[in-house]
Nucleic acid binder design. Structure first.
Lengths: 142, 142
DNA sequence: TTTAATGGTTCAATAGGTGAACTATTCACT
DNA sequence: AGTGAATAGTTCACCTATTGAACCATTAAA
């Protein structure tokens, strides 16, 4: 069936892209952070007073996995923990100054590389691509 | 810049899709194999007399990582190793009958789920999507 | 025939993940 | 007010995936 071939092509291509982004992050940017860690850091940066549970839900992983991730970022001095004064179970996460600096630098470098590749596409091409991907993601979310 | 937003949207969507495929594989199909393992198994199936080095190159990972992966599949009785008679350094990998059965079953189940989602797209939409992804992959490969 | 190079494995270390058990705290309700 | 359930987060034991260096066996090259 044709579906089979399309899925194969998708898998092969998406592997290449994902691997390439990881390598870019590793080589061109900073050696001392992984793609997963950067994703978490970035999430905390863009979501004010986020919590572990929220991140676990957003990333579809267990809370204990988030704790481990948070610890790694904390040990590197990139994020802070702050207990809620009213509900003392909750720990709010935020990015430190060092963390913000790190994100800014990393994004500039990452966008340099990606921007170069994306210049081979026209605007319409990019938009239909992203929209198709988002449509698929939305369908799969349920 | 607009690029920043596009990359964010891409990251969010691709995370959802990848996670969803993983979960489908885990829940609906077999509990006893991971997505990575299935990818390797599938590669061996579709590439005749493949070797560790070849897989390492195709997946962009080290040889030792492949050995570990191969061992897991071997322990489950899904693949076989066969030494080359002429050049005795080379070990050819092939999928066992049990492995082939496993792949067939898994693909049917996976395609059921994916097919249902993809029915919301028209042919043209799917093709431009895959082609854009492959174009990006190709650009990034260098 | 020494010396390279190649193919694969082993080993220690790190990251990422699961799921269950646990602590602390707040909520709900009779 | 007091007991039990729910919630937030951590810890623990265990597994998968990956790296990179050291290593063994084998073949190729000088």
């Amino acid at each position: 069936m044709e579906l089979k071939i399309l899925i194969d092509r998708y898998q092969t291509a998406i592997n290449t892209v994902t691997r390439s982004v990881n390598n870019t992050l590793k080589n061109k940017v900073h050696a001392d952070i992984t793609t997963d860690q950067f994703s978490t850091l970035h999430y905390i940066h863009t979501h004010d007073s986020s919590t572990s549970t929220e991140i676990a839900q957003a990333f579809g992983i267990g809370k204990s996995a988030v704790t481990a991730q948070i610890n790694r970022l904390f040990d590197k001095g990139l994020i802070e923990r702050k207990r809620d004064e009213k509900d003392r179970r909750i720990v709010y996460l935020s990015v430190t100054d060092k963390g913000v600096e790190f994100i800014d630098f990393t994004e500039v470098e990452l966008h340099k590389v990606l921007g170069k590749h994306l210049s081979h596409f026209d605007k319409h091409e990019i938009h239909t691509f992203i929209e198709a991907l988002e449509k698929l993601a939305k369908l799969m979310e349920e």
